[in-house]
Design a protein around this nucleic acid. Structure first.
Lengths: 206, 206
DNA sequence: GTCTATATACGGATAGAC
DNA sequence: GTCTATCCGTATATAGAC
């Protein structure tokens, strides 16, 4: 995206983002970051104080981006339930094809520093009163399946989108398919997921 | 599980397993391991040569355990398709409730050292000729949905089982539910997943 | 703002006594 | 087999010159 970087601060941030997301906090050194950014080692601390602080900056940035996108998707009044599923799946898959390492980075980071979630990102239970959850709930009730929590369905949506990217190495090995075939499959999921979601909701209770 | 450890080698292995799985390779020090095991620092290298080698031992151990369980599940001739789904989901969820950090550990490790997969574990495309894949394929064809790869369905199965554990922190935050409620939900999934899987397969093509 | 040089600490690994 | 002591490389961070 940035062919010619602008300021030194941004060079550092770009390098740090790339390395932290790929390797995590402990495996990334400030020397790696300085080299990747093409700047002097001392400048990392000059601009960002500490490695910890630089990491937190990257983490909060990604976390906020995710929450923002999610918030828009689950509260879009212009789309019905299936359209919401389709739009969200398509959006996530587009993002994941470009940045496949981000989910693992976020999930890993949240285990190491769960406090960041509500301290620096200010995350609350944004799902609870969302339009999407209301619509899922209504659809379930229409099928007489009110015993199932709408959250179960939401978890499925996220899992169907994200998991194939997180688990790509092992899934590709176990199935013996190559990179191109896998990417093709991910693109097919753009439209499949919404249909699967509706099938899970509308299947009759047994 | 082990209230009284036996040999020094096992003490080290148990400590290393716990810490590596929780924190990953880079964030875990040999000193941490020695302290956790209650043994002398020098003994780590005495028994396992290097931190790298100890880590690989743990990684291969978990990887083989996973592959073994998977191999059994997908080739069980005594169960039909829906029963396979139900059995596999139930097995995975039981394991994940006890060891929720293992999937993230494996997926992370495989990114860092993908070679270990076929070098030390000897993993091939075990899915390709499995009974489960044949059955999924047959079920899809029976619905006139031969355009969908059975692998897509398998990915869904794994995602529905594993993802809620990997993403637990963020999902719990976003929904505002507590630990007990979340565990209850995971237990409900034991029986839900197989039904969802069948719904995804048997829903009519549109 | 950017560089060199360095303080300070920590981590992996081993030598050698017991 | 287990311990103490230590070597040696590397990492974060900063002081101070330019």
């Amino acid at each position: 995206m940035p062919p010619t970087d602008t300021t030194t601060m941004e060079k550092i941030l770009d390098a740090a983002r790339k390395l932290f997301v790929q390797q995590g906090f402990a495996a990334t050194t400030t020397r790696d970051i300085a080299k990747e950014a093409g700047i002097n080692l001392a400048l990392v601390n000059y601009y960002y104080g500490s490695k910890q602080n630089l990491f937190k900056t990257i983490m909060v940035e990604h976390m906020k981006g995710f929450m923002k996108g999610l918030s828009v998707g689950i509260n879009d009044p212009s789309r019905g339930l299936e359209e919401k599923f389709a739009f969200m799946a398509d959006s996530y898959i587009s993002m994941l094809l470009v940045q496949p390492d981000v989910p693992l980075f976020l999930l890993r980071s949240l285990r190491e520093e769960p406090d960041v979630l509500f301290r620096d990102v200010g995350i609350g239970p944004i799902l609870t009163d969302s339009l999407l959850m209301k619509e899922i709930d209504a659809a379930l009730k229409a099928q007489g399946r009110s015993l199932i929590s709408p959250l179960q369905i939401f978890i499925n949506l996220m899992g169907l989108c994200v998991f194939p990217f997180i688990a790509r190495p092992i899934l590709q090995m176990a199935s013996g398919i190559d990179d191109d075939q896998y990417t093709t499959m991910m693109n097919e999921r753009r439209s499949l997921i919404a249909k699967w979601m509706m099938a899970m909701i509308t299947t009759e209770q047994r």
